[in-house]
């Protein structure tokens, strides 16, 4: 098999996940896009491990070991991420990352009551979209 098949598929999946991370508003959908990006990296690791284990007689199988570690770390990451999202939802009543602007710098963030201008700007963007 040509190495370009898995490599190109991996690159396209990574860019799909990149679009999802940048374009989604719900925090859980952003986490799903992060999972897609991690899976693209896993596919690359497996393909290059299969290639190198035959071509360079590499017996460490580092690609497959790193893939297993990535999968385990992704599981830990999704657990922590969902716990954070649920805590944010419990405190704020929303999981839209556009509305979490407490640490944003700029002219519109004058005090603790930044929720008003932030949400109004978000609603304006929604209305125009």
């Amino acid at each position: 098999m040509h190495l370009a098949y898995p490599a190109v598929l991996s690159a396209l999946l990574f860019c799909t996940g990149l679009y999802g991370v940048l374009a989604r508003r719900n925090a859980i959908l952003v986490l799903m896009s992060v999972e897609l990006m991690l899976n693209a990296v896993n596919l690359n690791l497996v393909a290059f491990d299969v290639w190198l284990s035959r071509t360079a007689r590499e017996t460490l199988h580092s690609g497959q070991a790193l893939t297993l570690f990535t999968i385990a770390i992704a599981a830990a990451e999704i657990g922590i991420g969902l716990a954070i999202v649920l805590a944010v939802y419990r405190n704020r009543g929303t999981s839209d990352i556009d509305k979490l602007r407490d640490t944003a710098e700029g002219p519109e963030t004058a005090g603790p009551d930044t929720e008003g201008p932030g949400t109004s700007a978000a609603e304006k963007a929604e209305a125009t979209a």
Binding site: T16, L18, L22, A23, R25, N26, D96, D98, A125, E126
Partner: peptide, 15 residues
Amino acid sequence: PDADSGNRWAALTVA
């Protein structure tokens, strides 16, 4: 309707 944020076209360009 608000699943995508307003910067969808910028995200599409980058991707």
